[in-house]
Amino acid sequence: MFTIFGVPSAALFGQLLLGLINGSFYAILSLGLAVIFGLLNIINFTHGAQYMMGAFVAWMSLTYLGIGYWWALLLAPIVVGAFGVLLERVLIRRLYDLDHLYGLLLTFGLALIIQGLFRNQYGVSGLPYGIPRELTGGQNLGFMFLPNYRGWVIVASLIVCLFTWFVIETTKLGAYLRAATENPTLVQAFGVNVPLLITLTYGFGVGLAALAGVLAAPIYSVNPNMGADLIIVVFAVVVIGGMGSILGSVITGFGLGLVEGLTKVFYPEASATVIFVIMVLVLLVKPAGLFGRTA
């Protein structure tokens, strides 16, 4: 076996794989943010809270209703997505004509309120949520022990990202969406219900956050602050990828997961900051982000 900078290659492969798995969460979350920003021009700071709500819906449906993980994967995005639709209709809609900052302030405030309400009710220690029976155990890959559940997270995340990209870039619905962002008045003139389209897009983006929440529930602590910790990193991912770029957010999500994984091997103390260092470097060289178009 060979070594790289004193680290055995086997250990390195393991770390890279884990980085990819963490990248899956970054990818799904930043994808949702990118879709919302790209089509609505809203910087959705509630995303972390909505991710947390996804995990909580999974926990609640198991605890109060006896509904297991697999149905929660479907149920949580619908419930939380519907909540997102309500938010868009009642509050966010009013800010489309104003500066980005207002949307940011509104969604940030909403995130604090939602997190506060959950904290009051459930405390911060977290709630137990187990790995579904079908995915317990793991595979010995020779260089590492890969839990089945983590394997499933990568697969699920890739499917979701590809599906979203496919819908937005190649279908008629996606074409309407993209056209509606470019020139809403014109698209409306063609008889397309643009406000409805935008509402549903927001609901979809929020649903993605909730899905990531359900995926995270069995492996991370389910607590009201779980999204607040993650959302800042995810925002950095979106900025590095280029605000609003769907492909950019997915690739950067996985890529930064890898970089973070490597940092955890060579200099673990810096693993919480490495993404922000990269963000600064990218912004210096390409202010619009790696995949962004300059306005």
Binding site: A11, L18, I21, N22, M144, Y220, V265, A272
Partner: peptide, 15 residues
């Protein structure tokens, strides 16, 4: 040494 607070410990557990 793990950054405080951390979400993901899998990498450190592997080590």
């Amino acid at each position: 040494k793990t950054p405080f607070p951390s979400n993901d410990f899998s990498s450190f557990i592997l080590q």
